[in-house]
């Protein structure tokens, strides 16, 4: 199980990145993250929706109501230009941390076990 703090920290890059692939709605985003993490991250509604609304307030997202192919009306979110910038920043930060950790975790070439 991934600890709460890490889950909370990863919401923003997840949401921005998923929306950068195309407009989507809350339920689909949760499902997508669930699949990607092999069910190790399962957001509740009270986790995701306030974040979506918060990002919308900050102008990183826009929302609109739409029904897909005769289905029920859902509230879709779309990433803005400002949101894409924020996503790049997030990405860089995660990669920096990731790269640093990887250097520590990869054993020096001469010490590789046979």
């Amino acid at each position: 199980m991934i600890p709460k703090a890490l889950v909370a920290a990863s919401i923003k890059p997840f949401v921005l990145t998923i929306l950068s692939e195309g407009d989507s709605y809350g339920y689909a985003i949760i499902q997508r993250v669930k699949t990607l993490t092999r069910e190790r991250i399962k957001w509740t509604t009270s986790t995701l929706y306030p974040v979506l609304h918060g990002l919308e307030n900050k102008g990183l997202l826009e929302s609109y109501w739409q029904s897909s192919e005769g289905g029920p009306r859902r509230k879709y979110y779309r990433i803005t230009a400002k949101g894409r910038n924020a996503m790049q920043t997030e990405k860089q930060q995660w990669l920096d941390v990731h790269e640093a950790l990887m250097q520590l975790w990869s054993p020096a070439p001469g010490l590789l076990p046979n």
Binding site: T45, T47, Y49
Partner: peptide, 18 residues
């Protein structure tokens, strides 16, 4: 799975007030 009302309300509240 959607969580309890109280925690939801607190989270929503944060966004609402801003």
């Amino acid at each position: 799975e959607m969580g309890d009302f109280d925690s939801a309300e607190i989270e929503y509240g944060k966004v609402f007030w801003s």
